[in-house]
């Protein structure tokens, strides 16, 4: 069991308010990702849940029990840090066993739990090494192993993959997702990378300036962004925004079209423009097109489409895929 409830949580450091007022329900067993640009308060929020920081005001409950004033050690949560935070003076075995030692578990239980965690995470051959003798990916796995042996109510991940190279990041992403499928424990995961958020989450919390912009499943966020910020933050390449006359045609202050929802034609389209750069990724081609009166628009087309620099092309949005926003940036 591991539901987490935040009620009117506020946090300020000195005079600076980082989180003005957040309420949030995380259901048991869900994989929830906090995502947002750096400085949006997502790590602070995680640390408040962990108990590493005091809330300035509000309430945090785990499994319905008020934990606001409880020390981190008593909250029965596990955390995986960005820096892994392994104990350098202990072997891999010592690291993984540490939480159980702290609760004075019997030795046989510790051994069994460590061996089990090691086999799940492919660390069996490394149990007697020190953290510094391991690669980045292995260290990450040790940190996860240390988190799972306690059978916590929930896992907290603080940007755990940002120190890994791109290929390893993809692999570890899959491993963490698999782990969640296997353990079915609540996971709260902080990242600034919207791809990680989209691929891993059951539900995403998009944060901006300490406020929740939207809370929903990845597809909800993609298909029905609540506002311009979420629309721009979720999806890659970014959504194209157009303001002014073109937007007014749709009865909105501004409109947005995702690159994948723009069809490119050699003839005239809804808009026409000049190709500035075309990026070939093999599977896709990104065209950056200068459109008069609308600025640069990015399109995503199939890989075999060949447009050259300087060519004039037409751009037409897919029917029903134009997002409309009012003057406050809220979806209409």
């Amino acid at each position: 069991m591991g539901s987490i409830t935040l009620k009117n949580v506020k946090k300020s450091f000195g005079g600076v308010t980082v989180i003005p007022d957040i309420s949030l329900d995380i259901e048991d067993g869900q994989f929830v990702v906090f995502v947002g640009p750096s400085g949006c308060g997502k790590s602070t929020l995680l640390r408040l849940i962990a108990g590493l920081e005091d809330v300035s005001d509000g309430m945090i409950a785990i499994d319905g029990e008020d934990m606001t004033k409880t020390a981190p050690a008593q909250r029965k949560l596990s955390m995986v840090f960005q820096s892994y935070a392994l104990y350098p003076h202990m072997s891999v075995r010592g690291n993984i066993a540490f939480p159980l030692k702290m609760e004075k578990a019997p030795k046989e239980k510790i051994d069994a739990a460590v061996n089990n965690a090691a086999s799940i995470l492919n660390l069996t051959d490394y149990l007697d090494r020190k953290p510094r003798q391991l690669s980045g990916g292995q260290r990450q796995r040790v940190a996860i192993g240390r988190a799972i042996v306690r059978q916590p109510k929930a896992f907290l991940f603080d940007e755990p993959l940002s120190n890994l190279d791109a290929a390893l990041r993809v692999a570890m992403r899959l491993e963490i997702s698999e782990l969640h499928n296997k353990l079915k424990t609540t996971m709260v995961y902080v990242t600034h990378d919207q791809v990680e958020a989209m691929t891993m989450a059951d539900k995403i919390v998009v944060l901006n300036a300490g406020r929740i912009e939207q809370y929903g499943s990845p597809l909800e966020l993609y298909q029905r962004p609540a506002n311009k910020f979420v629309a721009g933050f979720i999806g890659s390449p970014k959504m194209n925004f157009v303001e002014g006359a073109e937007a007014q045609k749709h009865g909105a202050h501004s409109i947005g079209v995702r690159p994948e929802h723009l069809t490119v034609s050699r003839g005239p389209g809804t808009w026409s423009g000049v190709v500035k750069v075309s990026e070939h990724l093999g599977s896709d081609t990104f065209l950056h097109v200068d459109v008069e009166g609308a600025g640069t628009m990015t399109t995503r087309t199939s890989g075999d489409v060949a447009f050259k620099h300087g060519e004039t092309v037409g751009l037409t949005p897919v029917e029903g895929r134009v997002y409309r926003f009012d003057a406050q940036g809220m979806a209409v």
């Binding site: 962990a50 108990g51 590493l52 020390a71 981190p72 050690a73 008593q74 949560l77 596990s78 955390m79 840090f81 960005q82 820096s83 935070a85 392994l86 104990y87 350098p88 540490f98 939480p99 702290m102 609760e103 240390r146 306690r150 907290l156």
Partner: peptide, 12 residues
Amino acid sequence: DILEAARMDGAS
């Protein structure tokens, strides 16, 4: 981080 990790791991 490492001290915080210990705290999260249940260390007094």
